[in-house]
Computed example of a mutant assay.
Amino acid sequence: MGWKTDYRSFYYQGAPEPEDPILPRGETALLTIDIQNIYMQLADDPVGQTRWAPFLKRMREIVIPTVQQLQARFRAAGMDVLHARIACLLEDGRDRSLSQKKPGWNYLLLPKDTESAQIVPELTPHPGEVVVTKTTDSALTGTNLRLVLQNMGIKNVVMTGIFTDQCVSSTVRSLADESFNVMVVEDGCAAGTDALHRQELEIINMIYCHVLSSQELLALLETNA
């Protein structure tokens, strides 16, 4: 068992195992999507406390510590750490994409300067790190991130963040379509439920990205050091 055989959908059962990726320091960056204060406040009401308890537990005990570890490792190695967050540029949210205006779960009115729109304190960007603010699910579609990555010489993007089945997946697909090599860190991501999380990883694995654990990624980085 391991990243070369785990998270395989129907389409890739029996497919050859992929080769270990080569991750040169100057061509590899860590990108974290949407780990913002708003999503750590989902259990402020009695109904939410039950519904979101598993998600919040995973975020506090697994995802945030994992992303902290990876960010520290990338920074120590002189590798780029980038951040994306979802927020609107206008107070009334007219600049949001249609998907962010639909009623229900996807409806988000997060003006960029509000406390709820900020990245959680544990993952606060360091001075000089790239932070993009998007009004779409995909961090490429809604920003100039593709151009920034290309200008920086980045070819390999390591992905962490939330939600696995929404903004993470949308960004992964956009990166893959732009011919970036993408790796998604399983324990650095979360969806509303573990079932949604795993299902989306199986959908995007092998075609749009490779899914692996943080420890597997760290081992690869050591190999490429």
Rank of each mutant, 00 (worst) to 15 (best):
T136N: 05
D194L: 14
S169A: 15
C167G: 06
L145E: 02
K155E: 08
A191D: 05
F163W: 13
N151R: 12
V182G: 00
I162L: 15
V148G: 02
R146P: 07
G192W: 11
V172N: 00
G161L: 03
Q199M: 15
T143H: 07
V158N: 04
D177G: 10
D137R: 14
V182M: 04
I203Q: 14
L140P: 07
G161M: 03
D177W: 07
G142R: 02
D187Q: 05
V168N: 08
N181R: 09
A139F: 11
S138T: 03
Q150D: 10
E200L: 15
T141M: 15
L145N: 05
V172M: 08
N144H: 12
I154W: 00
N181D: 09
N144D: 15
V158S: 00
D187S: 06
S170I: 00
N151M: 13
E200R: 13
E200D: 14
A190Y: 02
T141S: 14
Q199E: 12
L147G: 09
V148Y: 07
I203S: 09
T193L: 07
V157N: 02
C167I: 07
D194R: 13
D177N: 12
F163A: 09
Q150I: 10
F163K: 03
E186P: 04
R173L: 11
I162K: 05
V185G: 03
R198K: 13
V182I: 04
E178T: 09
H197K: 09
H197W: 08
N151Q: 15
L201M: 15
V182Q: 00
S179E: 11
V157F: 03
M152G: 02
L196V: 07
F180M: 03
I162F: 11
G188L: 03
L147F: 12
I162S: 05
V185Q: 02
V182W: 02
L201E: 05
T141Q: 15
G142V: 04
G153D: 01
V182R: 01
C167S: 13
T164V: 05
E178L: 13
V168R: 07
T193W: 04
M159H: 02
R146V: 10
C167H: 04
E178G: 04
G153W: 03
D194S: 14
Q166F: 14
N156H: 08
T164M: 06
K155N: 06
L175R: 00
K155W: 01
C167F: 08
L147M: 14
S169P: 03
I203G: 06
M152W: 06
G192D: 11
C167V: 08
C167M: 11
S174T: 06
R198I: 14
L175E: 01
D137E: 14
N151K: 12
S138E: 07
L149D: 01
